[in-house]
Design a protein around this nucleic acid. Structure first.
Lengths: 207, 207
DNA sequence: TCGTTTGAATTAAACGTTTGTTTAGTTTTT
DNA sequence: AAAAACTAAACAAACGTTTAATTCAAACGA
């Protein structure tokens, strides 16, 4: 599916509104108005509102594997590899945070006729890479053995998402404001906290 | 605000539908049908659909502080206190998971005219208790000092929520099915993982 | 114990809006 | 001249809410 410039623009506007107000809380008239187009263009370009969401997710969740492989092949010990992996995951998710929010919310909606295939296969690939890295570290005697590997990803991504979904609360608590300051906090302090947490867990018990 | 039996029943049905399909994705006709009542009863009892959400959140987020205080006053060392606190938080949130899901997604919606006061004040109280416990542990030389306390709660709750929001995925990965088995996994394995993670973090660096 | 009164509970139907989508026609590009 | 892009208007369906009428249960005076 090839997208022209105008289609990408419409999807960008729709993504923002979907993340803010939800899919059902956003009307095609709202999207059209904000994107500066006629309502009929949504059906014209995407077929329907729901197929537009499909196109959005397809567009956003492409190319994950290639990037991840590149990061995982970087030089360094097991602890460095964990750091690189977490930093990459947080960056990738923060960049696509709106699309992820829509998925998190709509994934459980039984009415939604949308393909979450790309999202799921991305999760599976992601998990396999994490599993391999940790198992190798365990065999090398660097990581503890009594670790629930499947729950590492919820810890990494969950920490980010909970922070992001409650950002109104945490930004007030931490006295942060402004988009740039938020991005900076995520890429430095929040990422460091997650790296520290996971490494502490992996280094805790008996090897 | 006193709620009679029928009102509680309606709220329970509404909560389930809101969590599954979203607030905007659920119609009052759907709620009325599933609850076995006439549509007009929603306006009659609550004033409007949005005020019904207000009543739901007010109803669900009451009594948190008292329970939490009770748990925190239990005997035990710092590690035991951390265990008790995390077990309580996970149980409390899993019990009210639907209401929390609604809040997580509606909290950022600028159109929603709902009071999140109770939710916020609960978060603040929760944070203060955690902060006090960890600072005491640090002064006693039990916990590491280079900890970002504000980000502990995102790690605890985020791990749970990410698991819950993607339960379709994780249940397939872990080969779990059935409501009871899920509850059991949450209360045992998932809780243990989070306890292990936080204790590893708190015991990691220099005291 | 009776019929009557009263206020709350409940109902079907209608209200005006808003929804996503389509149509038929016009403009722009190739 | 053909194809693609775009528009205003209309469509039926669904939305949350209100109305006016009815049922119900408890309270009351005789």
């Amino acid at each position: 599916m090839e997208l022209n410039e105008k289609q990408v623009h419409i999807l960008k506007v729709a993504e923002k509104l979907f993340a803010e107000n939800g899919f059902d809380g956003t009307s095609v008239r709202q999207i059209a108005k904000e994107a500066g187009i006629n309502i009929a263009m949504i059906s014209y370009y995407f077929g329907s509102k729901e197929k537009m969401l499909d196109a959005l997710l397809f567009h956003r969740f492409a190319g994950f594997r290639k990037e991840m492989d590149k990061v995982m092949s970087e030089e360094g010990g097991y602890h460095e590899k964990i750091d690189h992996m977490i930093a990459f995951m947080i960056r990738r998710i923060h960049d696509n945070r709106r699309a992820y929010k829509v998925v998190n919310f709509e994934y459980s909606n039984p009415v939604r006729q949308v393909s979450f295939e790309r999202y799921i296969s991305q999760k599976i690939e992601n998990y396999k890479l994490v599993e391999t890295l940790i198992r190798n570290g365990q065999e090398a005697g660097v990581f503890a053995s009594d670790i629930n590997i499947a729950l590492i990803i919820p810890t990494v991504l969950g920490t980010y998402f909970h922070f992001y979904y409650n950002k109104k609360f945490f930004l007030a608590l931490l006295q942060i404001s402004g988009e740039d300051a938020i991005d900076d906090y995520v890429y430095t302090t929040l990422t460091a906290h997650i790296q520290q947490t996971v490494k502490a867990l992996l280094s805790s018990g008996s090897p």
